[in-house]
Nucleic acid binder design. Structure first.
Lengths: 186, 186
DNA sequence: TTGACTTGACCGAACGTTCGGTATAGACTC
DNA sequence: GAGTCTATACCGAACGTTCGGTCAAGTCAA
């Protein structure tokens, strides 16, 4: 029997990587957070710490795709769909108290699978928003730029909230997104 | 005689902390980057790694205050002043190829002097922009929000550029800032 | 009884830090 | 000017600790 279920394990894992970054997420901290000893972790992730980080990145990416990005392709007024995304993001980042894995894991590791994962994740995110904006009648070029800008502001909001120790900046950013994205092209 | 001048030392130090984060910036890497052996680093920074990070944060903050923020309080059209800031930021972050120390050092360290330094740095940054906006006739409340939003977008642009390995998002963000900040209040 | 799972004991390497000591340069006597 | 003293800057070697990772020996449901 497993000491810990896979979803629970991934959740704890992501928490450690989020708050400490890759180098700061030592196996001791991971072990403590998950309740698994070093050796058990290596049973589940034969590839070691690298594989843990990759798995957590994949897991988070899938969660976001299913919960935050999927509604964008749904029906209903575009503004409502964007608000749904914002709601899910608020949940995912715990109102700005957590940081983004893409940010946390972007320090101090050489080129490799993790970095590729990151790049792809960002790209998927932007493209999902851009597609929706285009379908809402916004010119393709503008849609791309605004989508990228949206992700930029989300990321920046998280950085700001973390630095200030105050979730408000992130919240405000999320709240202003739907209208900002759908405003008339100049 | 010193093996390395203080400005050069701080520059190298900041490079290591920026790219690897606090935990990733090992004394070996720092030693290699600065040309000073471990023991010599402790001669210059008796407080160890913590003191190095604090020093680098202070150094960067002063550079930004003098070079990027000071022009905001100068004379000339507000839009020109903002463009001057953008220019200096572009220089400081090497067009988006470097990351922000406030971001890099915000992972994995407990409350302490470093975190306070960060919070103060962010606050000073926002306030400098807000003050200028207010003097340009923008209502105080709007000025604050826009200033915070500006810093958020700068930070987000850096995250995005780093994740994508492409300086363009940051460049585009910088370029759009002056007009965005000075647009008519709605 | 097999196979998935966990574990304590252990490894070499790297970590941040400290210590004793050397080289150099300027200041002060004699 | 020679000799001594002090301060600054640097370094090699080692400290104890923690790192990421391994292994043989269990545990336990199917």
């Amino acid at each position: 029997m497993s000491k810990i279920t896979e979803p629970e394990l991934m959740s704890r894992l992501s928490e450690v990587f989020r708050t400490h970054g890759y180098d700061g997420a030592s196996l001791s901290k991971i072990s403590e957070a998950t309740g698994l000893r070093r050796a058990s972790l290596y049973h589940r992730f034969p590839g070691g710490k690298t594989e843990m980080a990759e798995a957590v990145l994949k897991w988070a990416g899938e969660w976001l795709a299913t919960n935050a990005l999927a509604p964008l392709a749904g029906s209903g007024p575009p503004e409502d769909r964007l608000r749904q995304m914002a709601e899910k993001l608020d949940e995912f980042y715990e109102g700005g108290r957590r940081s983004c894995l893409l940010d946390a894991l972007s320090f101090g590791l050489e080129e490799g699978g993790i970095r590729d994962h990151q790049k792809a994740g960002m790209e998927a995110w932007i493209e999902a928003i851009a597609t929706m904006l285009r379908e809402s009648g916004i010119p393709p070029r503008t849609a791309r730029e605004r989508a990228e800008d949206a992700v930029i502001r989300i990321q920046g909001g998280l950085v700001m909230s973390r630095a200030k120790g105050d979730p408000l900046p992130f919240q405000r950013t999320l709240r202003s997104l739907p209208q900002d994205l759908l405003r008339k092209p100049e």
